[in-house]
């Protein structure tokens, strides 16, 4: 076991659980400033909550989520075995240290090991890249918003209009359940599994960022405008801000398929990232 990697990852889990990224805070502040009535009351409470959690180093939300990692590892990264072990060990250590709510339940027996680990959990997506370092992105994913994620297998004839309609309709139909204002990750193409994974991966992007391709960026902006025109608002109590952002990622699709994965993230868009050098040194990425 590599103690430095475990410690670095445990700290990142703690940071994700207690300290909301600045890009999300800025988006929430902008939302507060344009809202009034119950919507403003909700956003003021959210921002106060963020401050209380950050100052006291306590979890932002009692649902500290399912630990989800996206790992970009250099093909020459020498500590892959250590990193694999450390991802699980950090979940255990973080459960004690932060603390996190024990959120892993055996689907057949109902047993909860109490340490946020279990079959396939923490959920890890491995992505080989060039180089000799690794980057680990920690995404603790809450259950309320995850329950609002969905897959739509559209017909290719539905086209971009069909995607727009499906995403807007789905997000608005979830009302206050995912704790809006939400961040929506949309994965288009690939196949059912690829679309869902791309949707979740899109949640790693900073709120306010745009896809580098203008056509995709334009659709992100249009989806935000259309969803926010619904009036559903913060916590589904009415208002101008139902989503903080929509992020899209795509893969090429089969000629006969148009899968659309919709990953829904609550306002507590908790993220943290670390870089692990070839020497095992862990540094804070964000």
């Amino acid at each position: 076991m590599n103690a430095a990697i475990v410690e670095g990852l445990t700290k990142a889990i703690g940071r994700a659980a207690t300290d909301l990224p600045n890009d999300v805070v800025r988006a929430l502040e902008a939302a507060r400033d344009r809202e009034e009535g119950p919507a403003r009351v909700q956003l003021e409470a959210i921002l106060k909550n963020v401050e209380v959690a950050r100052d006291g180093a306590v979890p932002i939300c009692q649902d500290t989520g399912t630990l989800t990692y996206f790992v970009k590892f250099g093909v020459r990264f020498p500590l892959l075995g250590e990193l694999m072990e450390a991802l699980t060990e950090a979940a255990r250590a973080g459960t004690e240290a932060v603390p996190l709510r024990p959120n892993t339940v055996h689907p057949f027996t109902g047993a909860n090991p109490g340490d946020n680990t279990g079959a396939h959990i923490p959920a890890v997506t491995w992505e080989p890249v060039d180089g000799d370092a690794a980057e680990v992105y920690v995404l603790p994913k809450g259950g309320g918003s995850e329950n609002c994620s969905a897959l739509k297998m559209l017909t290719p004839g539905a086209g971009l209009k069909g995607i727009t309609e499906a995403v807007v309709e789905h997000v608005v139909s979830r009302e206050g359940k995912p704790c809006p204002p939400t961040v929506i990750g949309v994965g288009i193409g690939g196949g059912a599994d690829v679309a869902m994974k791309l949707g979740k991966r899109a949640l790693l992007r900073s709120v306010g960022s745009r896809h580098p391709e203008p056509k995709v960026a334009e659709m992100e902006e249009r989806l935000e405008t259309l969803i926010n025109a619904s009036g559903m608002g913060p916590m589904g109590l009415g208002g101008k801000t139902t989503v903080l952002a929509v992020h899209i990622e795509y893969a090429h699709r089969h000629p006969a398929s148009l899968p659309v994965g919709i990953a829904v993230q609550c306002w507590a868009d908790r993220r943290a990232a670390v870089r692990i050098g070839a020497d095992g040194q862990v540094s804070h990425l964000g």
Binding site: K48, N49, V50, C61, C179, M235, W267
Partner: peptide, 13 residues
């Protein structure tokens, strides 16, 4: 009554 979803720290305070 509706309490702000996710505001777990505020509630704890």
């Amino acid at each position: 009554t509706h309490f702000t979803g996710g505001a777990g720290a505020l509630a704890a305070q």
